[in-house]
């Protein structure tokens, strides 16, 4: 491995090493601090936050803020807690991720193994669509969702997320299948396998890693989205991020910081779990998304 030999190549003294460790730990604290603050204060009564120290551990432990954030807190005008919106997000994320990943895989397959005149042009247009600021499509999207009768529905959000995810999923699979040996496809053709048989029997079984990367990427992006959610949903169809923002920034009543923190952790939990369970693939997706082409 280059990684290990690279490391041994650069030598440093003991004092310098101590300093390096100190710096690295300091930054670990910096990155962990907000998470710590959220967790600790979500377990305190409100009074203790107001008067006490935000960095201190709770004197009185309570899970009341979590229960409140989940099922009774005021979101907009309804005291529903975040639960219905959590479900909205799940109903939005699952079909959108599934559709965009499946289509991305098929697109990548066609663009690499069944190339036709103009395939590069098609791919370039799909690639460029990854980079547009979504503000530019907000107005027409709102119109078309309205025309389709999908304005303010979770289905409408599924459609929007599936469509605007296609560029990335196609890019991921296209780059992965580009390295997949074409001779295998040719061998399968001689064996008499058709278009879908080759995809299902030859390419899909070898696509595990890229499917994981794509699903994680899409899941994270769609779950964390705020722009589309806030633009195209109504009070009943809001996804989690929009509901959380409403919870925190509603101007009425007392600011229940502990509930806000609990809600924020609830909103972060699914993506955090994905990150902890499969961080390697998460990073790979970020890199693939960052270093395109």
């Amino acid at each position: 491995m280059t990684a290990t030999t690279q490391q041994t190549a650069v030598r440093t003294g003991a004092l310098v090493r101590a300093l390096i460790y100190a710096l690295l730990l300091l930054f670990a604290v910096y990155y962990l601090l907000p998470l710590y603050v959220m967790v600790v204060n979500s377990l305190k009564p409100l009074e203790e936050i107001r008067q006490g120290n935000m960095l201190a551990l709770p004197r009185t432990w309570t899970i009341e803020p979590w229960l409140s954030a989940w099922s009774t807190a005021q979101i907009g005008v309804q005291p529903t807690g975040l639960k219905p919106y959590f479900l909205n997000s799940i109903q939005m994320v699952v079909p959108a991720v599934f559709t965009s990943t499946l289509l991305g895989a098929l697109n990548g397959y066609v663009l690499t193994k069944w190339r036709f005149r103009g395939a590069d042009f098609v791919f370039t247009l799909m690639l460029l669509s990854c980079f547009i600021p979504f503000q530019i499509v907000l107005i027409p999207s709102a119109r078309i969702l309205g025309l389709l009768g999908l304005g303010g529905t979770v289905t409408g959000l599924v459609l929007i997320h599936a469509i605007y995810g296609l560029g990335f999923t196609t890019l991921f699979f296209r780059n992965y299948y580009e390295a997949f040996p074409s001779e295998l496809v040719r061998a399968a053709m001689i064996d008499g396998a058709g278009f879908f048989q080759i995809f299902r029997r030859i390419l899909l079984p070898s696509s595990g890693p890229i499917i994981v990367v794509t699903v994680i990427w899409q899941f994270t992006n769609i779950w964390n989205d705020f722009l589309f959610g806030s633009s195209f949903s109504n009070a009943d169809s809001q996804p989690m991020t929009v509901a959380l923002n409403n919870l925190v920034n509603s101007s009425t009543g007392v600011k229940e910081y502990n509930v806000h923190f609990a809600g924020a952790i609830l909103a972060a939990l699914p993506t955090l779990v994905v990150y902890i369970v499969s961080g390697r693939y998460f990073v790979r997706g970020l890199m693939a998304g960052a270093v395109k082409g």
Binding site: P181, E183, L184, R186, A187, I190, R201, I202, P205, S206
Partner: peptide, 12 residues
């Protein structure tokens, strides 16, 4: 029937 340079054996 064809034998390929890379053998093209289905890996799965």
């Amino acid at each position: 029937a064809m034998v390929f340079q890379s053998y093209a054996l289905y890996p799965n």
